[in-house]
């Protein structure tokens, strides 16, 4: 392999995060909304511990695990996509991106099935405070998954048309950063809402 190439991607060298700085401002803004939501959940639970513990048992933890795995896997695929474009391998990059999007799609399917189950039982936002939080938090995140898929889709199309290269691939990193954020939020959401009691 190209040992003569001096690559510094592992060394502390950069002051700016990968991708467009604008997406990072956006990511920070989005993360703060979720942070407020998480804290609100935890402090509301404080006054309704029994209610929260009781209805947490009605959630489908298996689906939640599957969804965690799909998002982590999908995030990993995106890492591979970025690595591929850094090697100037368009085709591989597109394939990894498509794999990531399909994992996102799988998430949407599983989550929809969960919603269908809840709605089928007549549960809605006004059922109780726990379901209010559960539905709001997961649905807000759900919308982000969809938005992330749209962004990755746009990046994949541009990558397919040869819009990126080993030198210029800010777009891929931008989409990747957003997608990792979607994953990151779920990593906290999963234990908080489904497991911690």
């Amino acid at each position: 392999m190209q040992e003569q190439v001096i690559d510094t991607s592992d060394v502390l060298h950069d002051r700016h995060p990968p991708g467009d700085l604008a997406i990072w401002i956006f990511i920070l803004a989005e993360l703060s909304v979720f942070a407020v939501f998480f804290a609100a959940y935890a402090f509301t639970r404080m006054n309704n511990v029994e209610l929260f513990n009781e209805f947490q048992q009605h959630l489908d933890r298996q689906s939640a695990l599957l969804n965690t795995l799909t998002l982590i896997t999908s995030s990993y695929f995106v890492v591979r996509a970025v690595a591929a474009i850094k090697e100037n391998n368009h085709k591989l990059c597109v394939n990894w991106l498509l794999a990531a999007i399909s994992m996102g799609f799988l998430f949407v399917v599983i989550k929809s099935a969960e919603y269908a189950h809840h709605f089928g039982e007549g549960i809605n936002l006004s059922t109780n405070t726990f379901y209010m939080f559960y539905l709001s938090l997961t649905f807000f995140h759900f919308m982000h998954v969809i938005m992330g898929m749209v962004i990755l889709g746009a990046v994949a199309i541009k990558a397919k048309n040869g819009g990126y290269s080993d030198i210029e691939h800010t777009g891929v990193e931008t989409g990747a950063s957003y997608w990792h954020m979607v994953d990151l939020v779920w990593l906290i959401l999963f234990p908080l809402v489904y497991v911690m009691r």
């Binding site: 703060s32 909304v33 407020v36 939501f37 609100a40 006004s126 209010m132 709001s136």
Partner: peptide, 13 residues
């Protein structure tokens, strides 16, 4: 009631 939460959180942002 959920509007108390939705309204507070989102408008705080």
């Amino acid at each position: 009631e959920y509007w108390q939460w939705w309204g507070s959180i989102f408008s705080a942002m």
